[in-house]
Write a protein that binds this DNA or RNA. Structure first.
Lengths: 208, 208
DNA sequence: AGGGTTTTCTACCAGATGGTCAGGGTCCCT
DNA sequence: AGGGACCCTGACCATCTGGTAGAAAACCCT
């Protein structure tokens, strides 16, 4: 027992380090040896827990997606019991996503890495996001049919929102790289634009 | 002479292929062997022309930055002889950048790869962009002093515009990965937002 | 035709990478 | 005490990586 008493949570520690490394150095730029060295363990330990590098990435994605889903679920329940309008519910979800991204900046790195075409993690992300998207689409279409929401192409709208979030993630990282500290302004601005766009598209009570 | 008569332009062919590969697979994800195989040549031929992988990336960045500078220079000259207002000149530049990005989507991939924190190409990009930025900043500050432009933090404004462009690049790539074809709408929308933002910040004749 | 330059190739290398295998330590349960 | 499950590790491996050395073409000029 050279290591400190981290007996039970090696898995989590590896996941944390992997998230950071995948997010900053990229998947190809991450070596299991380096990752292990940074944790004071041997590469074989990582492989014991995660079988292969690829599946380590999958596990990282899984955990992050899980957090996202949990957070969204929570917001959804809250806003439902709160009894807001459709539009208020959408707004709460968007705000939650941005809050999550700002609270855990490492997520932005992973999202960026993983949303690259040809990324090995892209498929895994899709697996998690697709049911979310499908569910949102069905809900929106129902609301539209009931006249509580303005009619648009739900699929395209969701995709547009998603790509906006990814774009914002990249933006924040670029600004950080340029030395601009935790300036909230650009993020808030983008969020405002996204919300305005969604409101225009969805809220039947919105002007214009 | 197993190869076709491409005698003189191997360099350019390699640069093209490298641009595509760096943009899609990333720097680490690109192997010189694969790159060469795709061109029907041997890896050593690439190294003969570019000395090292790192300097190949530099050369790719150099060429792209060169194209950008040339294009901007041209727009600048045109709009100067055309005798437009400051604001019209800014708008023309922004439109040119977006046009370039849409004409050559591969550039987006490279920009995305290279504007990642810790990217080996980041420094090279900075080398090319810094004089451009400095020049724009000086110009803007002069115009502000002369009262032809609304007063703001020029540096921050430029950085914000730059990060927006990078963000848009990412957005487009994400949409493409999601199977959304050459839908122009999101791009045009973002461009509109950027232009509106710049106009609000710069144009003394702008309302609000 | 022939010498010199430019371009491309074959052969090879040291290091790193992801991954396998078998063993050893620690804990818990009976 | 002892057997098994869990966790970790050292030794090892095949493969791929960017990069070097030197020879063989291909080209160019006279």
């Amino acid at each position: 027992m050279a290591t400190t008493g981290t007996r039970g949570n090696t898995r989590e520690l590896v996941l944390d380090a992997a998230l950071a490394s995948f997010g900053t150095a990229g998947y190809d730029g991450t070596s299991l040896d380096d990752l292990a060295a940074g944790l004071g363990i041997r590469k074989q330990t990582i492989l014991y827990h995660f079988v292969s590098k690829r599946r380590l990435l999958d596990s990282v994605v899984d955990r992050c997606a899980g957090e996202l889903v949990t957070a969204l679920e929570r917001v959804l329940v809250e806003s439902r019991t709160g009894g807001g309008t459709d539009w208020e519910r959408v707004e709460a979800m968007v705000r939650e996503v941005f809050r999550l991204a700002l609270d855990q900046p490492v997520l932005l790195g992973l999202l960026r890495e993983v949303s690259r075409p040809n990324s090995p993690g892209a498929v895994r992300v899709r697996i998690h996001l697709e049911p979310l998207m499908a569910r949102a689409r069905r809900w929106m279409e129902d609301e539209m049919a009931a006249g509580r929401m303005r009619r648009t192409d739900a699929q395209l709208l969701l995709l547009s929102a998603y790509s906006t979030v990814v774009g914002v993630a990249t933006e924040i990282e670029v600004l950080r790289a340029a030395g601009v500290g935790p300036t909230l302004r650009p993020v808030v601005q983008r969020r405002g634009e996204l919300l305005r766009f969604l409101r225009r598209s969805l809220d039947p009570a919105a002007s214009l």
